Computed example of a mutant assay.
Amino acid sequence: MSLDRKHKAQKLTFFKPDLQSELKIPYVSQGVSAGFPSPALDFLETTIDLNKALTENLDMTFYIKVEGHSMTDAGINDKDILIVDRSIEPADTKIAICFIDGEFTVKRLKLEKDGLYLMPENKAYKPLKISEENNFMIWGIVTYVIKKI
């Protein structure tokens, strides 16, 4: 079964985190107020390694660059980087990287009585019901989105 234009999978580029990196990024562990300003706290700066901070299962985590617009209402936009953990069990409403009929896509999982649906988060795209005819696999679960604002 080939996917029509409204179901066309995004092009995803996969990367493995570089856990050997010694890149230390300045980090202020004291939270920044999103409401009223809080007093400045001098010299609380330390460093963070984002590869390690955003990765729970080192051997099963990948970074994936998104190309496409089917998940914009979930806050996933073209050129965002997804952090995907392959060790997390798929579940209803989770956002997953799926392999379907030879292509990868990112969609929200929706489990209904009549089967599994891949749900886009953009009204211009239609849900896709998974059938026995599909070559289908849930490849991993999205844990973080890294984006430029």
Rank of each mutant, 00 (worst) to 15 (best):
L12C: 06
L12W: 09
T13R: 08
F14D: 07
F14V: 14
F15N: 10
F15I: 12
F15W: 12
K16D: 01
P17K: 13
P17G: 13
L19T: 09
L19M: 14
Q20Y: 04
S21D: 15
E22Q: 11
E22P: 01
L23Q: 15
K24I: 07
K24T: 11
I25N: 04
P26C: 08
P26I: 14
P26N: 10
S29D: 11
S29G: 12
S29F: 07
Q30L: 14
Q30P: 01
G31V: 13
V32K: 06
S33H: 07
S33C: 00
S33W: 05
G35F: 04
F36Y: 08
P37F: 10
P37D: 08
P37Y: 06
S38T: 13
A40E: 14
L41K: 12
D42E: 15
D42W: 13
D42R: 15
D42S: 12
E45F: 04
T46R: 10
I48W: 03
L50F: 15
N51Y: 06
N51A: 15
K52W: 07
L54Q: 14
L54W: 14
E56Q: 12
E56W: 08
N57Y: 12
L58R: 10
L58C: 00
D59I: 06
D59K: 11
M60P: 00
Y63F: 15
I64W: 06
I64P: 05
K65L: 07
V66A: 07
E67M: 02
G68T: 11
H69S: 01
H69Q: 02
S70W: 06
M71F: 02
M71D: 03
M71V: 08
T72H: 07
T72G: 00
D73G: 02
A74N: 09
G75H: 08
G75I: 08
I76A: 01
K79V: 00
I81T: 15
L82T: 06
V84I: 12
V84N: 04
D85P: 09
D85F: 13
I88K: 11
I88A: 00
E89H: 10
E89K: 11
E89V: 12
E89Y: 09
D92G: 05
T93S: 09
T93Q: 12
K94H: 12
K94T: 08
I95L: 09
I95D: 05
A96K: 07
I97P: 02
I97D: 04
I97Q: 01
C98D: 13
C98T: 15
F99C: 02
I100G: 03
E103W: 01
E103S: 05
F104I: 02
F104W: 03
T105G: 02
V106A: 09
V106K: 03
R108I: 11
R108W: 03
L109D: 01
K110P: 00
L111E: 09
L111T: 05
L111G: 00
D114Y: 06
D114P: 07
G115C: 04
L116R: 04
Y117E: 00
Y117T: 05
L118S: 06
L118E: 04
M119R: 04
M119A: 01
P120I: 09
P120S: 02
E121D: 00
E121Y: 04
K123A: 10
A124I: 02
Y125D: 00
Y125R: 02
P127L: 10
P127T: 11
L128G: 00
L128M: 08
I130H: 01
I130Y: 06
S131R: 07
